[in-house]
C-alpha cells in the first residue's frame, strides 16, 4: 500500500494505492473518488455496541466504509475530510493514540478504533466528553480544521480550548484560567487547557467554534 497526502496544509487529501487484497477503513462520506472496481462495504465500526457508542459519544457516524481491492491490479482511492485543513498519517506499532471527536479519517486493517471517557475537564475544555482511541498496528489518518502543529512534550504546556486534536496516552489534561480573572475574560482566551505529561500532542491552528463565533454576528 502506498499513500500520499497532497494538497498542502490548506486542503489536504489522501491518495491511497491499494494492492491486491489490501483494504482501508474510512469514516463515512470520506471517499472523494475511487477506481470503479474497488469493493465498498458499510460496516458497523467495531461491532454494534462500539459503533453506537461512537455515534452518540464522539459524534462519529454509525457506519464506516470498508474499501477493499479484490482485483489483481493496483487501485486508487482518494479520501478527504469534511473541513479544509491538514491531514497527518500516524504509524502505530502496537501503540495507542487519542483523537478528538471528528478527527479520525481512516485507518488500515489491524487498527482498532474505540471510544474512551475523556473526563469532564476535556468536556469543559470543548474537547468532548469522550475521545476516539486508535490502537494496534497500522496506519491512521486524521485531520483537523486548519494546519496541524506537532509537539513532543515532556513537562507541561498550555493549549487554548478546542484546539487540541490528538495526544498520546501519557498526557493528561487540566483546565485553568488563561491568566488572572481580568485577562482571562477580557483577553479573549478565557479557559485554557493545561496539558501535562510525556508524549506527543497535536494542535490545530484554527477551530470550527472560532469560525462559528466569527460568522454568527455577521449573519443577516
Amino acid at each position: 500500500m502506498k499513500s500520499v497526502i497532497k494538497g498542502g496544509d490548506a486542503f489536504a487529501f489522501v491518495e491511497i494505492e491499494l494492492e491486491k487484497d489490501e483494504a482501508v477503513i474510512a469514516e463515512s462520506d470520506a471517499m472523494s473518488s475511487m477506481a470503479a472496481d474497488l469493493d465498498v462495504q458499510a460496516r458497523l465500526n467495531g461491532g454494534f455496541f462500539a459503533a453506537i457508542l461512537r455515534r452518540f459519544l464522539v459524534g462519529e457516524t454509525l457506519f464506516v466504509n470498508y474499501f477493499s481491492n479484490n482485483t489483481v491490479g493496483t487501485k486508487r482511492l482518494t479520501l478527504v475530510q469534511a473541513t479544509p485543513g491538514s491531514v497527518r498519517c500516524l504509524e502505530l506499532k502496537r501503540e495507542t493514540f487519542y483523537l478528538q471527536p471528528g478527527a479520525f479519517l481512516a485507518c488500515t486493517e489491524g487498527v482498532t478504533v474505540g471510544v474512551k471517557f475523556a473526563g469532564f475537564v476535556s468536556w469543559i475544555a470543548r474537547e468532548g466528553l469522550f475521545k476516539t482511541v486508535v490502537s494496534g498496528t497500522g496506519k491512521v489518518w486524521y485531520g483537523a480544521y486548519g494546519a496541524l502543529l506537532e509537539r513532543d512534550l515532556d513537562g507541561e504546556t498550555i493549549v487554548d480550548t478546542s484546539h487540541l486534536v490528538a495526544y498520546s496516552p501519557g498526557i493528561s489534561l487540566k483546565l485553568q484560567l488563561a491568566g488572572g480573572i481580568f485577562s482571562s475574560f477580557f483577553g479573549g482566551e478565557g479557559l485554557v487547557t493545561r496539558v501535562t505529561g510525556k508524549g506527543k500532542i497535536v494542535i490545530q491552528t484554527r477551530s470550527l467554534s472560532g469560525l462559528v463565533s466569527w460568522l454568527n454576528p455577521k449573519l443577516p
Partner: peptide, 25 residues
C-alpha cells in the same frame, strides 16, 4: 451499503478522458 456508508449516490464515469475533481465538498 452505499446508503449506510454515507456515500449515497456517486457518479460513475465511463469512456476515455480526464475528469478533474475538487478535493473537498
Amino acid at each position: 451499503s452505499s446508503m449506510l456508508g454515507g456515500e449515497g449516490l456517486v457518479c460513475k464515469f465511463r469512456g476515455r478522458g480526464t475528469v478533474w475533481c475538487q478535493s473537498h465538498n
